[in-house]
Design a protein around this nucleic acid. Structure first.
Lengths: 206, 206
DNA sequence: GTCTATAGTCTGATAGAC
DNA sequence: GTCTATCAGACTATAGAC
């Protein structure tokens, strides 16, 4: 086994250590943002020494960029699969469910994204104005059509998308506040039921 | 006029400089969080020298704490005035309108709050678990009663509050993302109409 | 009250032994 | 590949002149 290389030219150990670093970096960057995060913390959290971090990555910024770019695909995919051929309400609700699932399973990634946006999106601004805007423009056309045809209630398609983003991501991003208020409940389980009701009343023709 | 003191023992100039500092600090802290913000930036932004900042405030942390505590009253008040004697839908909608107005007029304060929550609320956790939780517990009882009596549609009162928080604050906190997608629109004006529709369909008995 | 100068600490990154 | 040692710059905060 010794000397065995992975497909991308990295040994098992290299891959494992890179994973440790990425996991630790996600912990720290998602909490404190880029400038508030220190390599010392990430080193400690990952169990590696600070110079060793910089053996695997050229700089602090490189770690941060790699985290963000790994995140973006995950973030855009749920909207991509909204299908113009499907049942209108189920398609929108499917998007809601996928976004809520992301918030539940990847809350730190959600907070990393939130931190980036709060700072004015210095790194991903181009993606937002390009790929994201293009995707939203496409999908809102579909929603507008459904709305015009009476398959769902009349709705502002862009703000519908924004409300899906806000309602689902809130459970990850403001987790601390929600748990401070809800002491005896599992937030995500009731959120799931609540959002079904909300979007049903918002969109289903009666 | 020379030597005139304000009621709290501060001269006009002192008050004015403190204001400059607080305004600059809000700009910086709301973007980068506490640890990501540097006194140099705040000094430059406020037009004062760095040692002069520390003449008015004992430390960087003191500036941050004063910003947060000044914010909290603003943040809790809109919920406080939800009145059990009023018209149920109008009372909830009034809360939505007040929160959206805060997001529109104080977006930086909203992002300062978001940053504090993302970091696990190290400073205001006690307020969240105390004052905020108490307030939410009280108001959700009122909403539950309205719901039980059929004055509004059946609803999970806590998640209704969360959805009001998320939908209104999103327009301030994720402003960068929204403006990247919506290039030809004034977000807050359409948000106002959209949220009227959303909460009307969600709550009004038909 | 405001400044320059600087103390003392922290931070990202590098050098070099093993 | 990983470590110890350390550099150069940045950071919060203080001292002391004016």
């Amino acid at each position: 086994m010794k000397g065995y290389k992975m497909g991308n030219g990295q040994s098992r150990i290299q891959k494992k250590n890179k994973d440790f670093i990425m996991k630790a970096a996600l912990d720290i960057f998602s909490k404190y943002g880029f400038r508030g995060s220190k390599l010392d913390q990430i080193a400690k959290q990952s169990g590696l020494s600070k110079p060793n971090l910089l053996y695997y990555f050229p700089s602090k910024e490189a770690i941060h960029r790699e985290l963000l770019s790994g995140l973006l695909e995950n973030w855009l995919d749920p909207l991509r699969s909204l299908n113009s051929e499907g049942d209108p309400f189920e398609e929108v609700m499917g998007y809601v469910r996928r976004k809520l699932y992301l918030s539940k399973t990847l809350p730190k990634e959600s907070r990393l994204f939130a931190n980036e946006i709060l700072q004015g999106a210095p790194i991903i601004k181009d993606v937002l104005k390009g790929e994201l805007k293009y995707l939203v423009d496409e999908k809102t056309k579909i929603i507008q059509k459904w709305s015009d045809e009476g398959l769902i209630l009349p709705i502002h398609p862009y703000h519908l998308i924004f409300s899906i983003w806000s309602l689902t991501q809130h459970y990850a991003d403001f987790d601390t506040q929600i748990r401070a208020v809800l002491t005896n409940e599992k937030p995500f389980e009731n959120a799931s039921v609540y959002l079904e009701t909300l979007f049903s009343r918002l969109l289903k023709p009666s």
